[in-house]
Amino acid sequence: MSNLSETQKSIEIPAHDLKRSIGSLVMWAVFFALLALSWEGADMRPWDLIENAENMSQFASGFFPPDMSQWKMYVEEIWITIQIAIWGTALSIVCSVPFGILCSENIVPWWVFQPVRRLMDAARAINEMVFAMLFVVAVGLGPFAGVLALWIHTTGVLAKLFSEAVEAIDPSPVEGIRATGATGLQEVIFGVIPQVLPLWISYSLYRFESNVRSATVLGIVGAGGIGMVLWENIRGFYYAETAAVIILIIISVSLLDILSQRLRKMVI
């Protein structure tokens, strides 16, 4: 019995940590202050939504019924959009494999992964649209500029994702390969890549999905595909046609998402 009471005495519920609770209060205060501060800058006018409700409903009614008379042309342009995404993604996968390995701190020394990571940061930091505008100037209007834009941006994204997968591998099989007298490159090919391949495939398919979505707007800056048609319809106030294009984009993007999700489930 004395033993029991002793143990009971020694157990204590940890005291409420004042420092920590003040800390979290401050965090919330900062968060709300930031929201308030950004109100002006973001020009938040929620009441306009109510005041102009009539205008908006009139505007919205212009979209109906959607005008599908030119659906063949739309489908062709969407197909071009998908082809832009296919090539942009494929080229970036090819580049992301070496760049991803060169970004991994468990494979290469810091003086390799640091500069390569910064390069990939740069490729990732700049939006596809910006790259597309630049490439339209460089290689002219059309889908090829879109492919190049997706290629550069997606390489930055995939190299980061690929290297994160590489950094999470189990090092022991790699040691097993090393112990046979293999070269560094052979260690990567036989020890690292088989381990990360399912993840790499999954990331690549996911990026393909997002690239199809991105490619639908690349046309706005002249880089080919359905975006160009969409932009022209909006600019010309052809809202019924715009609605048709939007519907077709939603259908095709959803179909591709479903397809690629199926594929991803198969490889994992």
Partner: peptide, 20 residues
């Protein structure tokens, strides 16, 4: 590397590559 190829190492956790 040449010396390693004359030495076989067997590990507790086998260190095989699972997916191969």
């Amino acid at each position: 590397r040449a010396a390693r190829s004359d030495v076989g190492v067997v590990f507790q956790q086998f260190n095989l590559v699972n997916r191969l």
